[in-house]
């Protein structure tokens, strides 16, 4: 172990003997990238490194700031213990649990018959009421028609009566006149003449 130490120590002592500060500076130089170009790195690489540095540093800075920020925690509703608002489900919307989704088919003969009997009963009722209403309307119409006929008959009768009356009157007047004339002419023409004569005789005039 001690030999090795000696071997290791020799070169260091040599360099250290020349100038203590010098070799330390030299050894530091290759570590520092900002100093003169190191012997092992090509110029192009050096350039690229120099260009990459500022950008890379900035990026690393930006990244370094975010992770330090504490992440916002998302709380669930249960954790927050918020009181439930308007939690009532209307009766029409609420569906019993475990109910089958989708359409309910009617395929068995019994349920079909049940539906049909309901429909038939409704239809029969409708038809019956329709027929009844039609009959009633027909009766009313018939009664109105009979009434109207009666009225028109009466009117006609009255009209006929008045017509006959007028005819009779006319006839009567005519017949009276004729009668008078006829009687005068046929039965007692002499008397009439006499009367006329008498009448003429009786006439008095005042002067």
């Amino acid at each position: 172990m001690g030999a090795t130490r000696q071997i290791k120590g020799k070169p260091t002592s040599k360099t250290g003997g020349a100038s203590k500060s010098g070799p330390s500076k030299k050894s530091a130089k290759p570590k520092k990238p900002t100093g003169s170009a190191p012997e092992g790195i090509s110029k192009r690489k050096q350039k690229s490194m120099a260009l990459a540095k500022p950008g890379g540093q900035q990026k690393s800075k930006a990244h370094s700031t975010n992770p330090h920020k504490p992440k916002r925690r998302h709380y669930t509703e249960k954790e927050l213990d918020i009181p439930a608002l308007n939690g009532i489900i209307p009766a029409g919307i609420a569906k019993p649990k475990g109910q089958k989704k989708g359409k309910v088919f009617v395929d068995d003969a019994q349920s079909l018959m049940a539906i049909m009997s309901v429909v038939n009963a409704e239809k029969d009722k409708n038809v019956e009421s329709k027929i009844m209403r039609a009959r009633q309307l027909e009766e009313v119409r018939e009664a109105k028609r009979v009434e109207a006929e009666k009225r028109s008959d009466e009117k006609m009768k009255k009209f006929e009566e008045t017509k006959n009356g007028l005819k009779k009157k006319k006839k009567g007047r005519h017949s009276d006149h004729a009668k008078f004339e006829g009687v005068d002419d046929d039965v007692e023409p002499k008397e009439k003449k006499e009367k006329k004569v008498q009448g003429k005789k009786k006439r008095v005039s005042f002067g």
């Binding site: 009617v106 539906i115 309901v118 429909v119």
Partner: peptide, 12 residues
């Protein structure tokens, strides 16, 4: 198959 309302409409 038909559903109940469909059956009713058809039968009516």
């Amino acid at each position: 198959p038909l559903t109940e309302p469909e059956t009713k409409t058809l039968f009516e």
